[in-house]
Design a protein around this nucleic acid. Structure first.
Length: 355
DNA sequence: AAGCCGTGGCT
DNA sequence: TAGCCAAGGCT
């Protein structure tokens, strides 16, 4: 069931109203140039778009500032070593983004002469740059007329056109509808305006339709129940898994390992763990032989597709204990600077509290 | 195509 | 509180 599209005149009114609203209400964000200006830095646009994937503006803002202070341009980022970059990314989640970030920076240097491709097609070929991100960079950094559809835009458009088909099956209709209202000029501002509108006015629950510049054109508002859109498929439940953290000390240092390069928390520094199973594995598969003892309490963590309950085991090692490849003895007093993913940072804090 | 892949804020 | 949600990409 194709969406009913407004006339060309209505489409122009939607874009005009939205851009006028944006001119008055655009947020001041460090990667964003003032509305109407046309000199954004593609490097900063790209970096912000990668960081913002599935991540809130509030979380990204300080981390973006750290990154651009440390690596102000694509050349400096391409020269960073992998471990340093992964440490800097720690806590942001979806660590494949960090692996792709440095791969992308190096590809821009080695395959594109140090300049980002200016077209959607060219951008789409870069590591970590998918359909959304390619369109966003093309529009925001290069002023191209690209159809930018993220979760905010999808919600706004599903309501504006009253598209009732469930996501993600509705995406082709939503994309076509977005195309029909995307202006030729200021496509980058239009995209950012749609995202700002989605995050502040056209919210998932309790949208603020009385403040919306598009309400006069919104079919869902006209029909009286915009909150019901977009329709989503129910999500599967998260299974519960169990594991054990092995905290072993030697001369005021703790043993850290490097996770395998792909998969969950891939490439990140970590505390040693045994197997993650459907029931508590106890002291199975410790990183080294020793007098392990369980300490009280557990650490709970929720990942995207399962829950994890970690038991805590501690031991002391003598100075001749063997090291595996990638193992490091890290000063316990500086554990916060090790770049541990949040689940391990939580475990470290719990163990240090337990003494 | 649908599952994998983090984390924190909000309700 | 427990679930929902987020400026998605990759396989």
């Amino acid at each position: 069931m194709p969406a009913k599209l407004p006339s060309d005149i209505a489409a122009r009114q939607v874009a005009g109203n939205l851009l006028a609203w944006y001119d008055a209400h655009a947020r001041d964000l460090p990667w964003r140039s003032p509305p109407g200006t046309n000199a954004p830095d593609p490097y900063r646009v790209w970096l912000s778009e990668i960081m913002l994937q599935q991540t809130t503006v509030a979380t990204v803002r300080p981390r973006f500032e750290e990154f651009v202070a440390r690596w102000p341009d694509i050349e400096s980022l391409a020269k960073a070593d992998d471990a340093t970059l992964m440490t800097a990314w720690a806590g942001l989640g979806y660590y494949a983004r960090a692996r792709n970030l440095i791969a992308c920076a190096r590809a821009v240097i080695s395959e594109h002469g140090g300049a980002f491709p200016a077209t959607e097609e060219g951008l789409r070929g870069l590591p970590g740059v998918g359909a959304y991100t390619a369109a966003a960079i093309a529009a925001i950094a290069f002023g191209a007329r690209a159809v930018v559809v993220d979760a905010n835009v999808a919600r706004v458009v599903a309501r504006l056109f009253a598209i009732a088909e469930p996501l993600p099956a509705a995406m082709p209709d939503i994309r076509a509808a977005t195309d029909s209202i995307t202006p030729d000029a200021r496509a980058g501002d239009f995209a950012q305006a749609m995202m700002d509108l989605g995050s502040s006015i056209c919210t998932p629950r309790s949208p603020h339709c009385l403040s919306c510049p598009l309400s006069a054109h919104c079919r869902a508002y006209g029909e009286g129940d915009p909150e019901r859109l977009p329709v989503k498929r129910p999500k599967a439940g998260k299974p519960q898994r169990y594991g054990t953290i092995f905290w072993v000390e030697r001369d005021g240092q703790v043993l850290l390992v490097r996770r395998p390069p792909k998969g969950l928390l891939g490439g990140m520094r970590a505390l040693p763990t045994g197997p993650w199973a459907d029931s508590p594995p106890g002291l199975a598969d410790p990183p080294l032989a020793g007098a392990w003892r369980m300490v009280g309490g557990t650490v709970d963590h929720v990942f995207t597709h399962f829950r994890l309950e970690l038991a805590l085991a501690v031991a002391s090692a003598d100075r001749h204990s063997g090291n595996g490849i990638g193992d490091e003895w890290w000063p316990i007093a500086d554990i916060e600077s090790a770049g541990l993913p949040t689940v391990f940072a939580k475990a470290a804090r719990a163990i240090r509290r337990a003494g």
